[in-house]
Amino acid sequence: MPAASNNTPGNTANDASPRSVAQDFATVFALLKPQMTRLDAFLREQMTGFEPEIRPMAEYCIDTSGKRIRPALVFLGGWTGDAEDAPQELIRAAAVVELVHLATLVHDDIMDGAELRRNRRTAAREYGAEAAVLLGDALLAHAVHIAAQFPTTEVCAEVSNATRRVCAGEIIQTMRRGTLEITLEDYQRIIDLKTAELFRVSCYLGGRLAGHPLPYCLAAAEFGRRLGVAYQIYDDLADFFGDEKRIGKTLGTDLASGKITLPLIELFKRLSSDADRAALTDEILKRAAPRPDLRIQQMNTLGVFEAVSDAIHAELRAAEAVLAPHATLPPAPLLLRLRGVLHDQVMTLKKDS
């Protein structure tokens, strides 16, 4: 984990064990419990806006919500010291980003052929891929509908722009599946769009709607972007090293679908023989059946886990640095402590490997 700044209050990630980091993360989320309760109630109210025929499908997606990190970033980005008195605008903004996120998950699971999400059948498996595509579209449309009800056009503009960028990232990645035409720069561009963008806009909108100074809001946005990049790299690492029951979703889909992520980029770079590289190429191009056990063994032997883990921590250090000038504002210490979940999860992956 990156070194902590000595003058950053509430930051215990410097020398904390995985257990204490997990407790720290739980403490932060405990502070958000009133806001999360209001968010859940607001999302339930939104279900009445869906046509009766598809309302159970929308409710199914709401019920498979996970850690709700993006709404948490809205609340933390706009933290003023009292979750009980958080303005309703923060609740609505959190609902917007959560609905956008849920829509992208529905679409992701279709493209990945995933069976599980949050230890339940994915919407695609429950209702069929064709209906799930349209369900994702309906969730996106309702998110924009909520965003359009803010008195300022900034929320709708930010959310619609972010949604387009998320879709662009997914399109680019989809077009590169089953090919070797992806560089490290391409990979970084894809995850910046498809994952980091929603983290960015969550932190930014939280700060803006809470009335925090613009320089802080811009710094919080960059913090969110860096955190989002780190989170996606972690997710790609977990696809190889994670425990499916613990994580709660189908794993091993990246190699099987020909999706090149940082673990595969690093592995390909480290394979020393032409035969090994040719074999991996055949798997990516779907000319041969994927051999995930062999690839994980090679990743362990060749130091891929450590290299990818280092990339995660580099992003977390950059996230910390951008917030340093705003450390005295109420949200900054809590946002910095939120990084602990990634440290915790990476350490758990290492133990599982």
Rank of each mutant, 00 (worst) to 15 (best):
A3G: 04
N7L: 12
P9N: 09
P9G: 01
T12N: 13
D15L: 09
A26V: 05
A41S: 11
F42Q: 12
I54R: 09
F75P: 11
T80I: 10
A86D: 13
P87S: 10
P87C: 03
E98H: 02
A103E: 14
A103N: 06
R117S: 01
A129I: 03
A131P: 00
D137M: 06
L139F: 02
L140Y: 13
H145R: 11
A148Q: 12
F150N: 07
P151W: 12
T153M: 12
V155F: 12
C156N: 09
N161T: 10
R165Y: 08
C167P: 02
I172G: 00
T179I: 11
T179F: 09
T179E: 12
L184F: 09
Q188E: 15
I190G: 07
K194Y: 10
F199W: 04
Y204R: 10
Y204W: 10
G207M: 05
L209A: 06
H212M: 11
P215V: 02
G228L: 11
Y234H: 12
I260L: 14
L264G: 01
F268T: 03
D274K: 04
D276I: 01
L280I: 10
D293E: 15
A307Y: 06
A307C: 06
D310P: 00
D310I: 00
A319C: 05
H326T: 08
T328H: 10
P330R: 06
L336W: 04
L336T: 08
R339N: 14
D344A: 05
S353K: 07
